[in-house]
Design a protein around this nucleic acid. Structure first.
Lengths: 118, 118
DNA sequence: ATTTTGGTTAAGCATGTCCTTAAGTATATT
DNA sequence: AATATACTTAAGGACATGCTTAACCAAAAT
């Protein structure tokens, strides 16, 4: 069974490689067979298969074989997992900046009240 | 010189590792020194330094040394690069689904007009 | 039936990643 | 001046990654 963090590992890991990112980009244009995915890439078919395996292990891509042709398609949900993690980090950082802003504001106000009471 | 794709490589690569992700999560709570980053982690200080180097090479984190203390902070812009790439993929996929939807709708309508003309 | 096509498996090799320990440097602190 | 602190560098080892080539298999075409 796969916890959230292990799944994130697999997802970002899958996205690390530029070949896999271009395979994903192609798949956003619609489903493709293994050889269609391989055509624009400057490497052997087995290499492409290995990239595909990584994409599938992260759940970013699913595939099924009919006859001798394997058709691959993107899974939109998996993309959003990584996106949500990034989004959460950005939100927390913004909250931190807000708190920092409030703090600085408080300091300023206290400084003014000191001046007033002088 | 660093092109967009190489930068994405470095960014996703940085995000792949669960230790680095937790360092990032900590940094969203505010800046931290190297030893503060190391404290919750079950590994040697040099190991943490190496993770920090990866985070810095991707631009996700910046740091500066004052006296003997190095203070690290997150760079919000770098996070958004990865986020934007993911977002773009999702958008393209949704557009694909829309076009597919239109196509199916067209098929249905043509089917009806065939029925009508029968 | 034979050959072609589309994919798959296996093995191996070069390189990269993630950690370690040992030793070092530069700033505080006492 | 001597010691402690905060980091830094270097070297190396275990394992992972990204390719390759050489078979191999099953569905389709001839």
């Amino acid at each position: 069974m796969l916890n959230q963090n292990a799944l994130l590992d697999l997802t970002f890991q899958a996205l690390t490689d530029s070949t896999r990112r271009s395979m994903l980009a192609q798949l956003t244009q619609g489903p493709a067979t293994v050889s269609e995915l391989a055509r624009p890439l400057a490497m052997s078919l087995p290499a492409v298969m290995q990239h595909l395996a990584v994409l599938e292990s992260s759940g970013l891509v699913r595939s099924e074989k009919v006859g001798r042709v394997r058709t691959c398609r993107i899974d939109p949900q998996a993309l959003s997992l990584a996106e949500q993690w990034l989004n959460q980090r950005r939100i927390e950082w913004e909250q931190h900046l807000d708190r920092l802003g409030d703090y600085l504001e408080t300091m300023k106000t206290e400084g003014e009240s000191n001046d007033n009471g002088k």
